[in-house]
Each structure stands twice: as structure tokens, then as C-alpha cells.
Simulated scan of single mutants.
Amino acid sequence: MPASNYVSAKTAKLAAVLGIKKTKQRRYEQLVQQHHADLYRYAYWLCKDPDIAKDIVQETYLRAWKNLDSLVDPNAAKAWLFTILRRENARRFERKQFNYDDEAEQDNLIDTTQLSAAQSYDNDKLREKMALLPMEFREPLLLQVLAGFSSDEIAQLLALNVNTVNTRLFRARNKLRSLLCSTLSQENGYE
């Protein structure tokens, strides 16, 4: 093979590799832009700490970048990212046990300066009561309410039957309603 053909073949191969990298980077940037708010919101609900939530999301993005080629169906990207995030959250407990003081944790997710005092109070009560739900009920509810997943998608993410997910969502809502009603009764002096 003449030297000029070898150089042009090598140049073409290099251009193709660079084109693939640019395409991968574009796909990745689109994923981040489309799903960042949902991922952060879900991570925050899992750990109740804005800094840890940011770390979990960053670890999720790192793993997503490394494994972006395994994402074949772009429509499954959100579920794929949430699965990675759930696994990253589980890994943090494998690495290190954190000392949580629920009373000291402040909820910085919502800018309370923009909310009325009553709305801020209601949001705090809702978060407090949701935190009391068992994880088996809380997790599907958060995935539906915060991330907007359907029952089918939640079932796939949690490796559960759709009927199980629907039952857990129903029970989570009932338990949450009961907790909120008992709080309201206590606050109004009915108990």
C-alpha cells in the first residue's frame, strides 16, 4: 500500500472516531439537560441532603457516560438513569455509613422565600410524613410523583410486578393520607 493511501486511511479512521465521540458527547449532553432536575429531585428525596444528592447525581452521570453505548433505546433513557441513580445511592451505603440527624437536616430543595408561610409549612409536613412511610411504599410513590414514571416503568425500575407497584402506590397514598389527617386532627385539638 502506498504511503499516501495509508495516511489517508488513517486520517479517515481518526475522523470517524472523532465523529463518534462528538455524537456520544451530544447524546450525553441531551440526557443531562433533559433529566437533571428529575434526577436531583429523586436523589434528594432518597438522602435528604442537597450535597449528597448532588454527589449521587454526579456519580450517576459518570456511570452513564462510561456506559452510554449500552443505551440502545433513547426512550428508555430516563428509566436507565434512574436505575443507575438507585444503584449509586445503594453503593454509598456500601462505602460509608453516614450519620443522619433528621431534626438537624434542613430542606433546601424548595426556595421557601417564594412560598407563603402556610405553603412552606404544608410542604414541610408533607415531606415529614412521606419520610415516615416504609421504603417499599415511599420509593414507588416518589418515582411516580417526583419523576413522573408510570406504573409499568416503576415496575421495571424496581424489578416488581405491575400489580405489586399499583398496590404499593395505593397503600402509600392511604398511609400518607392517614398520617396527614392525624396530624391535622392533632393540630386542631381533636385528639
Rank of each mutant, 00 (worst) to 15 (best):
Y121C: 10
A147D: 06
R171C: 10
N166F: 03
V162A: 01
L146Q: 12
Q156P: 09
L169Q: 03
D124M: 10
G148S: 04
V145A: 13
L142N: 13
R171L: 12
A172C: 12
M135V: 15
E128L: 09
E139N: 15
S151Q: 06
L115D: 00
N123Q: 12
F149A: 00
N123E: 10
N166V: 03
E128Q: 15
E128K: 13
L158N: 01
R171W: 10
N123M: 11
D124I: 05
S150T: 07
T112D: 05
A155F: 01
K129N: 06
L146M: 14
L141H: 07
L115G: 02
I154H: 01
L169V: 06
Q156M: 09
S151E: 05
V145H: 14
D152A: 11
A131D: 15
S150W: 01
V165R: 00
L146F: 10
L160W: 04
Q156W: 10
Q114E: 07
M135R: 15
Q114G: 14
A131N: 14
L115R: 04
T113F: 07
N161G: 06
L143T: 02
E153V: 02
N123K: 03
D111S: 11
L143C: 07
F149T: 00
Y121N: 11
D111F: 14
E153W: 05
L160D: 01
A159M: 14
A131I: 09
S150Q: 04
R127V: 13
Q144T: 08
P134T: 04
A147C: 11
